[in-house]
Simulated assay, not measured.
Amino acid sequence: MEQQTAQKKLYSEKEQYIKGIAGNLQTTLSNSLMRLEKAQAQNIVSETALDQNFKSIAVVDHNQQIVLSNNLRNKYMFAKLQLKYYDGDLLNQVIEKNEFIFQYNKISQDLIVYAPMQMLSKGNSLNRKFNGLIFIRYSLTSAITDLRYQALFSLIKMTVILLVSLFVLIYIMNKFVVLPLNKLIQATKSSDLNNLTQVNLTAWGEIDVLQRTFSSLMRSVKSNIEEISDNEQRLLYALSGSRDGVWDWDIENNSIYYSDRWKEMFGFKNEDINDAIEEWEYRIHEDDLTSVVMALSNHFSGENSFLKAHIEFVAIMENIVGLLAVGKLFLGVVMVYLYV
C-alpha cells in the first residue's frame, strides 16, 4: 500500500515536471519556427534531451510528419513509423481541444506526453499557421528504481529496528519474568524444609509480588519448623526426665512408635518389639478383644472423644508392677527382721 502511494506521488510529480518542460518547449520552439530558425529550434530539442531520461522529444505537424527530433534520423519521417509508442489517433484530439494528454506505459515504465503547439508551415507565408504537437517519452525507470531502493532501505531499517526491539524485549522478559519464575518454581520444588532456597527479588509487577509472597511464606514456614523442632526437643527432654513410656500411633499411615522406655516398662528389650500396630494387637487378651474393637470403632466414628477400653494386657502389666512393689516391701521387712 505504501509503495503504491509512493508511485502515485512519483507519477504526479513527474507529470508536473514534464508539463513544465513541454510548456517551455511550446514557447521557445514556436518562436524559433515563426522566425524560421529551425537550427536553433533543433538545438533546443537536443539540449533538452541531454537528460538521459528523455527517450524521445519530437515536434509532429498535422500531417503526422516529424519536423524536429532529438534523433536526427527521424526528421521528416512519419511519426507512426519512427516514434515508439506514438499514437497518431490522438493528434486531432490534442489540436482540437488544445490540451495535454498523459499516458503511462507499465511495460517500458515510460511517461508519454502529447502537448499542443502552434507552428508555421514549410512555406514562408506568415498568414498560414498549422497546428501540431510535441511528443515526449520520458523514462521513469531510474526514478522507480530509486523509489524501490528507498522502500527496500526503509524495510531493512524497520526490520532492524523490530529485531533490536524484539531482542531487547526477549532479554527483559527473560531476565525479569522467565528466570525469576524458573527460580521460583525450583524453590517450590525444594523438599528440604531445613534448607529452603532463597528467592532473589529481581522481577517486576505481579511476579515481584509473587516472589515476595513466597519469600515471606518460606520465612514463616522455616520459623514454624524451627519452633516445632524446639518444642519436639523440649518434649523429648521432658519425657526422658520423667521416665514415662511413650507410644504414638499414626493412624493415617498405619505406623506406630514405641519408645525404649515403654518397652522397658513391660519387661521387653528394644529388639523384642518392632514398630508395628500388630505388636499391640497381639498382646490384647482374647476376652478383651471384642470390647477393644468396639471402642476403637466408636472412637473413629466420633461417638467417643477418647478411647477407653480395659485391656487384659495392660491389667496384667499393672498387676505385675503391683506385685513387684509388694515384693520389694516384703523383702524390706524381712531384711529389717533379720538385722534386728
Rank of each mutant, 00 (worst) to 15 (best):
H285W: 04
Y149P: 00
L179Q: 14
Q65N: 10
K97W: 08
V340Q: 14
K19N: 06
F300R: 11
H299Q: 14
Q3N: 11
A79D: 07
K38N: 04
L140Y: 05
S240Y: 06
Q150K: 13
T202K: 15
K129H: 09
R73T: 08
E206C: 01
L289M: 04
Q65G: 09
M218R: 09
E47W: 02
Q7I: 09
S291I: 07
I136Y: 11
E47F: 07
N195R: 09
A238M: 12
E96Q: 06
Y339N: 14
I170F: 10
N254L: 12
E271S: 10
N53T: 07
V94S: 10
V221S: 11
L217M: 12
Q186E: 14
V59Q: 09
I284H: 03
L217A: 11
I251D: 04
K189H: 14
K183H: 10
A203V: 03
T197P: 14
N63E: 15
L36K: 13
W249K: 02
I277M: 13
E2T: 03
K269F: 03
L239M: 09
D61C: 04
I207V: 14
V221F: 01
N298D: 15
V340F: 00
A6S: 13
V59T: 12
R35P: 00
T213R: 14
D230T: 10
D260G: 05
N304H: 10
Q40S: 05
L324Q: 14
I320H: 14
I316M: 09
S223F: 10
L217V: 01
P116L: 00
S259E: 05
S30H: 13
V314E: 02
D244T: 06
A49P: 06
K308H: 00
V209I: 02
R219F: 04
Y149E: 01
V199D: 15
G23I: 05
Q65H: 08
I170L: 10
N105W: 01
Q211R: 12
V293Q: 08
D230M: 07
N270R: 12
V246L: 15
L111H: 04
S240K: 15
E206Q: 07
R35L: 12
L90C: 02
L196S: 03
H299P: 04
S139T: 01
N182P: 00
Q40K: 04
S223K: 14
N270W: 03
K157Y: 01
M173T: 12
E278F: 06
L196F: 01
K55T: 01
P116T: 00
I256A: 06
Q65S: 08
L169K: 13
Y17V: 00
L331C: 11
M1G: 07
G88S: 09
K269N: 15
Q65D: 13
S297P: 06
L338G: 08
K183M: 06
V293Y: 10
A309Y: 04
Q3W: 04
L83D: 12
L155I: 02
M218S: 11
I225G: 03
Q40M: 05
L81A: 10
M158A: 13
I144M: 13
V326G: 01
A39K: 14
L201Q: 12
K84E: 13
M265K: 03
Q150I: 00
Y138P: 00
V199I: 15
L331M: 03
N224I: 03
V246A: 10
D61A: 02
M158T: 07
M265I: 11
R243L: 09
L338P: 08
L90D: 09
P116A: 05
D51W: 06
